[in-house]
Design a protein around this nucleic acid. Structure first.
Lengths: 145, 145
DNA sequence: TATTGTTATACTCTATAACTATA
DNA sequence: TATAGTTATAGAGTATAACAATA
């Protein structure tokens, strides 16, 4: 804890934390999709994993079963997901996202990436390379272990 | 748009965007303060700028005046802010955060920084240096212009 | 008359407790 | 009896519209 290395880490952590928070906030502002954060996150999970049961969604999203019920119900009402009884267990419901949902998600991602890309154009080649290396490191930072 | 440089930017933007989003989410998980995101953000604004009027808070937080009214009312009920009439304009209300609020904010920052610092200990010196350079670049990325 | 803030109302997200249907 | 999901209820955040107090 008192090694020179630990000091470097303690010094870097606060400004890095601030920078990450600010950039994440700025990126969230950069898209208008008429989805709430929960709706967007659930659609992204379905996009990533394919059809999921209500309980799996609750577990992935770390929110309660009744909350998932409500959000999925509203997404269904907007035609962004469909529900069907799991053929292997009639107690379970499979939630599937619709093509319209994928198209909304892709639009959001494109808007946010386009914002980043246009900001990156103001950076030097060396700076872009530093960020490229940092991207891998940030990914590792977010992963436990 | 078709220059080699633009291609580099378009290639970097999506993974960088993903990495930022994930790390920001991971950091948010790393603190338990019994504050909602809106409450935390309002207290952080007061911490940064000193006492603010309701309208200034609404403008900084980019939420409606009635929403600010409700949130500040609940923060006041918990003893985290106080309200006083602006001596220079009796229509306005000055909102001031209490020492207890600052102490909660500092605890959250310390928890999140401690998480980052402990993750950084698993990185090589060269990697830490890359992240140090990247921190400045991320700050610039989030800033318009 | 214009500005500052609050109240009324409505919708979404969130949780816990109670319930229904199926295994 | 245990599990998957929904319904009931309540509190917080969000907005727009209508209102009160002050400039």
């Amino acid at each position: 804890m008192n090694s020179p290395k630990a000091t470097v880490h303690s010094q870097l952590a606060p400004p890095l934390r601030l920078a990450i928070g600010r950039l994440a906030r700025r990126l969230r502002q950069e898209s208008v999709d008429n989805l709430t954060p929960s709706q967007r996150s659930i659609l992204a999970s379905l996009d990533r994993h394919g059809p999921l049961r209500m309980g799996e969604l609750a577990s992935i999203e770390k929110i309660s079963a009744p909350s998932i019920s409500g959000i999925v119900g509203r997404l269904e009402g907007r035609g962004l997901v469909s529900r069907e009884t799991d053929p292997t267990d009639a107690r379970s419901t499979l939630v599937r996202s619709t093509p319209e949902a994928s198209s909304i998600l892709n639009a959001v991602r494109q808007q946010r990436s386009a914002f980043l890309a246009s900001r990156l154009e103001t950076f030097t080649e060396a700076e872009v390379n530093t960020l490229k290396e940092a991207t891998e490191l940030l990914k590792r930072l977010a992963t436990d272990q």
